[in-house]
Every structure is written in structure tokens, then in C-alpha cells.
Computed example of a mutant assay.
Amino acid sequence: MLEMRDVSFDYGSGVPVLEHINVQIEEGEFIGLGGRNGCGKTTVTRLLMGLEKPAAGDIMYNGKVINHEEAAVRSHFMGYVFQRPERQMFRPTVQAEVAYGPQQLGMSRADADDAVREALESTDLTSLADAYPPNLNRGEKQRVAIASAIAMHTQYIILDEPTSGQDSADKQMLMELLTALNQKGMTILLITHDMDILAQYCKRVLVIGNHTKAFDGTPEELFTQREDLYGLGLSRPEAVTLSLAVPGMKYCCSMKEFTAEILTKLGGKSV
């Protein structure tokens, strides 16, 4: 389990960015992290990764305080995909990039080769193994960064706005990949401003507001029970709004689900 216990943080100015954050992240969860710009979402993930250190409180992993463990140590169990993934790539080919982590872990040549092959296959990058990473499109770069984490057999992967700047096809491919990884047991934590992703893919949502945790629960609880969404920098997804407007209709987390429910109510076949 990964935990933030009464964590506070500021950037040295004395002005609080986060105050008294308490969060437990269990293995196998799929969590969306939301809130308005500047609320501290990225700071939360940087604290978890060890890129920043708490001003107060503890970051814990399986009951052990890891405040002073550097990001390189935490990368053994936690991967991070930056909003601009090209900033974390420096090797000449996709295969070499994905191989870097296993090599640093001291894997044997055979084990590293197996880990890289499996990671490329699971992210649909085998055909791009010899490609130069900076020449890839945004979605492909995201998958290279994810493959790098998979190859290191990480248990947690954190992604900062992974779908921004992508078209709908790339977005769907990425979210299907993350869903598949989660179903295999990997814990996913992603920062997003995309309300449809929070509603459709995340099993749990954390919202940061007023320097602390303002919400922790299911997407359905967030979008149907909170009246302060606008104040938190959020909005209700169109599918949720439409499903709540139709008497007797169940909560729908996507337009596909909403369309299927409408057709069923009209006596048609679901899609």
C-alpha cells in the first residue's frame, strides 16, 4: 500500500500548497486525480514519486516511511509518465529506451530482453522497436513511457494528463491499455481534466481543493452527490447529465452506455 499520512508541502515560501493530506492507495486500484489548475494535483504525484519531499507528514510504502528515498529508488515499484513524455527519453531507439530500466535494476541480459519484449507487446509497440522516440506522435510517446514502467515490473504507474493533446482514437487506445494493465493488477493513478475519463474509466476519484483532499469516492458519488463541482474546477460529464435528466434511467458513465439505455427504453436493441 502507498500512503500519504498528514502530508503538507510548500515550495519554501511558507505559502501552503498542500495541507494535511491523508490518502491510502491500495494495489490494483484505478484512481483519477482531479481539481482546478494550480490546486496541487501534480505536487501530490511528485511527492509520491520522491521528486519533492514533504514539509510535514510521511510518505509510506507497505508501512515503511520513504520520505528520504529518492525517485530512483522508488522507481523500482513506481513508474511516472510526465505530461510531456519526451522529456524522460534519451536513448536512440524505443527498444533501447524501454531496456534502460531493466538494465539499471541489474536484470540478466535474458531477463531484460524478455521484459522489454513483453512490455513492447503489451503496449503495441513491437513494430516501432527501432524507431527514434522523438519522432513518435504524442500517443506513441506515452506508450513508450508506459512500456518502460512495465519492463521494470512496477506495481504503480502515475500519469500526468496522459490524454491531453491526443485525438479520440489515441485517447481510447491509451485508456484501453491502462484498463488492461489495471485488470492484470497494476495500480493506476492519473491526473486528468477530462471528466469523461473520470466517469468512464476510474474506479475511484480524488479531488484536491483548498490545499487539501476535498473528495475521495466513486465517480458516481462525485457526479451525482456533490453540488460544488464548479467550485472544485470540475463539471458533470454530458452522459451523466443526460442520464440524470431522464426519469427512471440509471446513472450512465459514457455516451455509449447512455445510447444503449435510451434504445432499450424505446424498445430497440442495445448497442
Rank of each mutant, 00 (worst) to 15 (best):
M1D: 14
E3G: 06
D6Q: 15
D6P: 05
V7R: 00
S8L: 01
Y11S: 10
G12I: 05
G12D: 04
V15I: 13
P16M: 00
V17P: 01
L18D: 01
I21G: 00
G28A: 09
G35S: 07
R36E: 11
K41S: 06
T43K: 01
T45A: 09
R46W: 08
L47M: 11
G50K: 00
L51S: 06
A56Q: 14
G57A: 10
Y61I: 14
N62T: 11
I66F: 07
H68E: 15
A72Y: 15
F77S: 05
G79D: 06
Q83F: 10
P85Q: 10
P85D: 11
E86I: 12
R87M: 14
M89H: 06
F90E: 09
V94A: 08
A96M: 13
E97G: 04
V98A: 06
G101C: 10
G101T: 07
S108Y: 08
A112K: 07
A112P: 07
D113Y: 08
V116T: 04
V116W: 00
L120N: 03
S122T: 15
A131M: 12
N135H: 15
L136M: 07
N137C: 14
V144P: 00
V144D: 00
I146Y: 01
S148K: 04
S148V: 08
A149E: 02
A149H: 03
A151Y: 04
T154F: 02
Y156W: 12
I158K: 01
L159K: 05
P162N: 11
G165H: 07
D170V: 05
K171A: 12
M173D: 13
M175G: 03
L177C: 07
L177I: 10
L181G: 04
N182C: 12
Q183D: 15
Q183G: 15
Q183V: 11
L189Q: 05
L189E: 03
T192H: 08
H193M: 10
M195T: 05
D196K: 09
D196S: 13
L198P: 02
L198V: 09
A199L: 06
A199W: 01
A199D: 04
C202S: 10
C202F: 10
C202Q: 05
V205A: 04
V205K: 01
V205Q: 01
V205H: 02
L206M: 11
L206F: 13
V207T: 05
I208W: 00
I208A: 00
G209I: 02
K213F: 06
A214V: 05
G217R: 11
T218E: 11
P219S: 10
P219K: 05
E220T: 12
E221G: 14
T224D: 11
E227P: 02
D228H: 09
Y230W: 10
L232H: 02
G233W: 01
S235R: 14
S235A: 15
R236F: 05
R236Q: 14
R236M: 14
A239G: 06
T241E: 15
S243K: 06
L244I: 06
L244G: 03
A245G: 12
V246E: 14
V246L: 10
P247D: 10
G248Q: 09
M249G: 05
M249V: 05
K250S: 15
M255I: 12
M255P: 03
M255A: 08
K256L: 13
F258A: 03
F258G: 00
T259G: 12
T259L: 14
T259M: 13
E261T: 11
L263Q: 12
L263G: 07
G267N: 09
G267H: 08
K269W: 04
